[in-house]
Computed example of a mutant assay.
Amino acid sequence: MTLATEWVRYGKNQEYIGYIAKMDRVNENLPAVLVIQEIWGVDKHIQDITERFAEAGYLAFAPDLYAKAEELRTERVAEVKAFLDTLPHSVWNNPDEREQALRELEEEKQNRVTKTFERMFSGINSSDYIEQLLATSSFLREEYGASKGQGVASVGFCMGGALSAQLACRDPKLKGAVIFYGNAPQDEDIKHIQCPVYGFYGDQDKRISDNVPHLAEQMKQNGKSFEYKIYQNTGHAFFNDTRASYNVASARDAYQQVLQFFHQVLNTETK
């Protein structure tokens, strides 16, 4: 069975856009998986993940969180990604070393990369992203013809993993949330979570994985459902098969676990 894919506009004033995928010969309304992008945007990799969930029988939707920002156009983000790929990963978050590498670029490119980098990495906790995600889950539950009346669950990667957790804190109707190597929500927000949460992490991704036991304890103290796996000999972004960090064994296992999780939380219709 082939997939039907398209970019659709939504929101009160059609101000948002997202990439949608579903099996083209399925006529009944489907439960929805909201796929939240990495910091690189809704690129080919995120579109591919969206299509994988559609092939698994869901209406899959990846909102483009960058669509309204000039500095975050696809080609600008790709330019930053190409620049960072020339550097050791340890340099990414080291301002002095990063600035030294930037100074080696020609001036016009240096200005573009600097502006886009600052916009990308300063916007991770943007309230605008959460507002769009809330509008997206509402759109999928209440308006979009192929998923109306069905449950919605979220999955996000890196930046999107953190946003998936934040969405769980803000959307009481969300059926489930999956975090792939994303930062945990604030402790004070955890009490608002109404759905099961599942997290996937790499043991070498210390900046994030070292905080997972604290998140687990906070979820337990607040009576929330939280499962997680920390994969051995695995780093950050292990699910991204376009990058050197990809770990096929960890990614394969995580994908199987995610499908089981979605089957559990999305197996009943939203009334």
Results as ranks from 00 to 15, higher is better:
Thr5Trp: 05
Tyr19Phe: 15
Ala21Val: 01
Ala21Gly: 07
Leu30Glu: 02
Pro31Met: 12
Val33Lys: 04
Leu34Cys: 14
Ile39Thr: 06
Trp40Tyr: 07
Val42Met: 07
Arg52Thr: 03
Phe53Leu: 00
Ala54Arg: 00
Glu55Val: 09
Ala60Gln: 03
Phe61Val: 02
Pro63Thr: 10
Asp64Thr: 06
Ala67Leu: 02
Lys68Cys: 04
Lys68Pro: 01
Lys68Ile: 10
Leu72Gly: 03
Thr74Pro: 02
Arg76Val: 02
Ala78Met: 04
Phe83Pro: 01
Leu84Glu: 01
Asp85Gly: 08
Thr86Ser: 10
Leu87Arg: 11
Ser90His: 04
Asn94His: 13
Glu97Thr: 01
Arg98Gln: 11
Gln100Lys: 15
Ala101Met: 03
Leu102Thr: 02
Arg103Met: 15
Glu106Asp: 15
Glu107Ala: 15
Glu107Phe: 07
Asn111Ile: 05
Thr114Lys: 09
Lys115Ala: 13
Phe117Gly: 01
Glu118Asn: 09
Arg119His: 12
Ile124Gln: 10
Asp128Glu: 15
Tyr129Glu: 00
Glu131Ser: 12
Gln132Glu: 11
Leu134Arg: 05
Thr136Met: 07
Tyr144Ile: 11
Tyr144Met: 09
Gly145Ser: 12
Gly149Asn: 05
Gly149Pro: 06
Ala153Val: 11
Met159Glu: 10
Met159Val: 03
Gly160Ile: 01
Leu163Met: 14
Ala165Ile: 01
Gln166Lys: 10
Gln166Gly: 07
Ala168Val: 11
Ala168Met: 10
Arg170Asn: 14
Asp171Ser: 13
Gly176Gln: 03
Ile179Val: 08
Pro185Met: 11
Gln186Val: 13
Glu188Val: 11
Glu188Met: 05
Cys195Lys: 09
Pro196Val: 05
Phe200Ala: 07
Asp205Lys: 11
Lys206Ser: 11
Lys206Met: 01
Arg207Ile: 14
Arg207Leu: 06
Arg207Asn: 12
Asp210Ser: 15
Pro213Cys: 06
Leu215Arg: 05
Gln221Gly: 14
Asn222Phe: 05
Asn222Gly: 12
Asn222Thr: 07
Gly223Pro: 05
Phe226Asp: 03
Gln232Ser: 14
Thr234Tyr: 09
Asn240Thr: 00
Arg243Gln: 06
Ser245Asn: 06
Ser245Ala: 14
Val248Pro: 01
Ala251Val: 01
Gln260Cys: 14
Val265Gly: 10
Leu266Gln: 08
Thr268Asp: 11
Glu269Asp: 15
